[in-house]
Structure formats: structure tokens, C-alpha cells
């Protein structure tokens, strides 16, 4: 499994003209495992949504090296889903087969077996027929990991995957990330737990709308860079002028 590199070229993504990700350039190497770290409102989720093509760049570009956006596995922050929906765990996990099976094709016996294996891999053995309404938040997050596992995607984006999850579940799911990393998949995860990042993630992008640091984790996460990231003003500046740094923007006549 060798995914293409993901290259960001002077990427800016904006909401109502206010940049959420501002002039970000860099490269997620094939098979790299990168933590995206930064204060609230730093543009971390925005960056992931731009990477899967859900948000269009305001300027700059994203080069996915020919990889279709739909081939990227994406685990959003789980809060948005209706956990009282009348579905069984196996049915939710099976959604990960969408790209393989499409809207109509019946799943083969081997594929059904893989669903069982995926549930077992995230510690949900025996949960196949359980309604998802009966799961705890941590178990539900494990289920979403099982779905992601079945997607078999070469590039995986995870948005705060360990929020509100106990340490044992986190350890289990981190093991899964390590396994994906070992298989040569590119992993990009938004995280807040700096200890976890330092222990498990070789690379880190420290984002505060603008990139503060991007590289080996030990060099990207220093007291000095973290202090600079904290200086980012969260509020929109309503009096902000158009960005001068932006080649695409019309220049004022001299």
C-alpha cells in the first residue's frame, strides 16, 4: 500500500472571507503519521474537510497525487450522528464496504466474515447484532473505527478520535493506528493530548490558522512554538483588511 503524497500549496480556506486555514504549504509524505495540533478554532477540522474535498480552497491548492477524495477514509467528530438510530453494529460497520460493494451488490461470505473480524479487531466481538442505541460513547467510537478499518483506505483522516474515551479504549485504538501506520497508510489525526502525540506520532503539524511548525514532533512541539500557537486570536477581527500576502487577490492600484 503506497498512497501518493498529499501536497498543500499555499492553501487558504476561508469562511465569510475570514481565513480558517491561512497560507499553509507542506507535504504529508506517503505512509507518514502526522498529528495536527493547535488551539480551538485553529483550522484543524477545516484542514481535514478541505483534504477530503468537502471544502473548496479560497486560494492555493491541494494535490492529492491522483487519489480520489472519496478514497480517503475520514472519521469526523462523532457527536454529529444519531446514536438512537435503529441499526445493528454490524450494519454500521458494513457501511465501510461502500466503495467495494456499491449501492446494490450483495456482500459475499468472505466480506461478511471481514465485518466480524473488524468488529473483533476493535474489541467489539459479539456485538454484531446489538442495536447501536445500546452502546456507550467509547464503544460507538470503536464501531466507527471498525467501519474505517473496512474502508481499507490508503489515507486516513481522524478528527479528535479519542475525545471522551477511556484510556484503555484509547490504547486499543492507538494500537490500531500503529497497525495502519505499519501497513504503509498515511495517517493524519487531529489531537489535543500532547503526551499521546509525543509518544505515538512521528510528525506534527502545529496549526494556529497559520502553520506555526511542521516536522518531527520533538522539533514541532517546543515551549516556544506552543506559546506562539496560544497567541492566536480566536475572534474574527471585523476590521481586518484584505490579506496582502495573497497573490490571487486583486491588488490595489498603486
Amino acid at each position: 500500500m503506497t498512497p501518493p503524497p498529499l501536497v498543500l500549496d499555499n492553501l487558504t480556506v476561508a469562511f465569510s472571507r475570514h481565513p480558517a486555514v491561512h497560507h499553509l504549504s507542506g507535504r504529508f509524505a506517503p505512509g507518514s503519521m502526522t498529528a495536527v495540533v493547535g488551539p480551538n478554532g485553529a483550522g484543524k477540522t477545516t484542514l481535514l474537510r478541505a483534504l477530503i474535498g468537502e471544502l473548496q480552497p479560497e486560494s492555493g491548492r491541494i494535490d492529492r497525487g491522483g487519489l480520489a477524495p472519496s478514497a480517503i477514509g475520514y472519521l469526523p467528530q462523532a457527536a454529529a450522528l444519531d446514536r438512537s438510530f435503529p441499526l445493528a453494529c454490524a450494519e454500521v460497520a458494513a457501511m465501510g464496504m461502500w466503495r467495494a460493494a456499491g449501492p446494490f451488490r450483495a456482500l459475499s461470505a468472505a466480506e461478511r466474515e471481514r465485518i466480524g473480524e473488524a468488529l473483533a479487531a476493535v474489541g467489539l466481538r459479539g456485538f454484531a447484532a446489538r442495536p447501536i442505541a445500546t452502546l456507550s460513547a467509547g464503544q460507538f467510537q470503536r464501531l466507527l473505527f471498525a467501519r474505517l478499518l473496512l474502508q481499507d483506505a490508503p489515507v486516513l483522516l481522524l478528527d479528535e478520535p479519542f475525545n471522551a474515551i477511556d484510556s484503555r479504549t484509547t490504547a486499543d485504538l492507538v494500537r490500531m493506528l500503529r497497525r495502519w501506520h505499519g501497513e504503509g497508510r498515511t495517517i493524519i489525526a487531529v489531537l489535543h493530548d500532547l503526551e499521546l502525540v509525543r509518544a505515538e506520532f512521528p510528525d506534527t503539524l502545529l496549526l494556529a490558522r497559520e502553520p506555526i511548525a511542521w516536522g518531527r514532533t520533538a522539533e514541532a512541539l517546543t515551549a516556544e512554538t506552543l506559546f506562539r500557537a496560544r497567541l492566536m486570536a480566536e475572534a474574527w477581527d471585523e476590521t481586518a483588511e484584505p490579506c496582502r500576502n495573497n497573490e490571487a487577490a486583486p491588488r490595489r492600484a498603486a
Binding site: I52, E54, A68, P69, S70, I72, Y74, P76, A80, L81, D82, F85, L87, E91, V92, M95, W98, R99, P103, F104, Q151
Partner: peptide, 18 residues
């Protein structure tokens, strides 16, 4: 199948190009 997935998790189906 697509209707169930779309109803449960429209964002997922969209991201999968569904």
C-alpha cells in the same frame, strides 16, 4: 442500502462519493 446510509450518516456517504 444507500437510503439507510444516507439517512444515518449523510456526511459519510458524501465523503465516499455515494
Amino acid at each position: 442500502r444507500p437510503l439507510v446510509i444516507e439517512t444515518f450518516d449523510a456526511g459519510f456517504l458524501r465523503a465516499q462519493g455515494g
